[in-house]
């Protein structure tokens, strides 16, 4: 780094001495912010890769892919998130939140996506924070995801769920849409109860809108499956014809 230079040859005035100190404080703060931004970008990149891997899941590789995804998530936790956490203590968490919040949101999105595909349920904030058990901040206090970051990450989850549902339907698993539909509905109804997130008002509004759009898309997919299936009574479909046929493998 470049050390501050004195402006005069006189002995340092008390005012200057104080500002030297303030200057060091600001420098430390800005350097910390920069490291957090970088760690957050890394968390984002690796979390996105996990999400993409989940989208590649098929019936045949499901177990292996999920195991790999969990290992990858763990690696993000142990490396990038841990690095991030070690920068923070006390008031830092909320002071620098804007620097690392994007990464944490993406991590929430990845972790909840994996959990949904594995167990068909929502990974709760409590469970998520339990998985951070080993991660401590600079003051050796537990590092946790904040409610806003969790909520915004879960908001993005609906987008991924919607994609899973649509590709599930496209790949001939009409049941996929129903499970996702129930999940997104639950999320949307849960979100509807919440007051606006003051910390991220704009994101909040945008994500609420996107969520409804995703829900409507998935509901429409369910509707299409249903209407199509209703045209002929199920007994007609039994026997020689099986929907979600085998001619695409």
């Amino acid at each position: 780094g470049i050390s501050p230079v004195q402006t005069s040859s006189h002995e340092m005035s008390p005012l200057h001495a104080k500002f030297q100190e303030i200057g060091r404080e600001l420098d430390v703060m800005n350097e910390k912010r920069e490291r957090l931004v970088k760690a957050s970008r890394d968390v984002t990149i690796h979390s996105k890769k996990v999400i993409f891997a989940v989208h590649r899941i098929s019936a045949l590789n499901k177990a292996a892919t999920l195991e790999q995804a969990e290992r990858d998530l763990n690696a993000v936790r142990n490396n990038q998130v841990t690095r991030l956490a070690r920068e923070l203590q006390g008031n830092d968490y909320w002071k620098f939140r804007r620097a690392f919040s994007p990464g944490m949101q993406e991590f929430v999105e990845a972790a909840t996506t994996v959990e949904f595909v594995k167990n068909g349920r929502l990974l709760t904030l409590e469970e998520l924070n339990r998985s951070f058990f080993d991660i401590k901040d600079a003051a050796k206090q537990p590092f946790e995801v904040s409610i806003p970051d969790y909520i915004l990450g879960v908001g993005d989850l609906t987008g991924e769920l919607m994609r899973l549902a649509v590709s599930g339907v496209a790949a001939g698993q009409p049941g996929a849409a129903t499970a996702v539909c129930i999940m997104i509905r639950g999320l949307y109804e849960g979100f509807s109860m919440l007051p606006a997130l003051h910390e991220n008002l704009r994101d909040w509004r945008m994500k609420s809108d996107t969520m409804l759009q995703s829900l409507v898309k998935v509901e429409t997919a369910c509707y299409n499956v249903h209407v199509r299936g209703s045209e002929y009574p199920p007994e007609m479909l039994a026997g020689d014809f099986e929907y979600s046929g085998d001619d695409q493998s």
Partner: peptide, 11 residues
């Protein structure tokens, strides 16, 4: 529209 879609899905 959303309501109608869901009602039809429900039969």
């Amino acid at each position: 529209p959303r309501y109608v879609v869901n009602r039809v899905t429900a039969g």
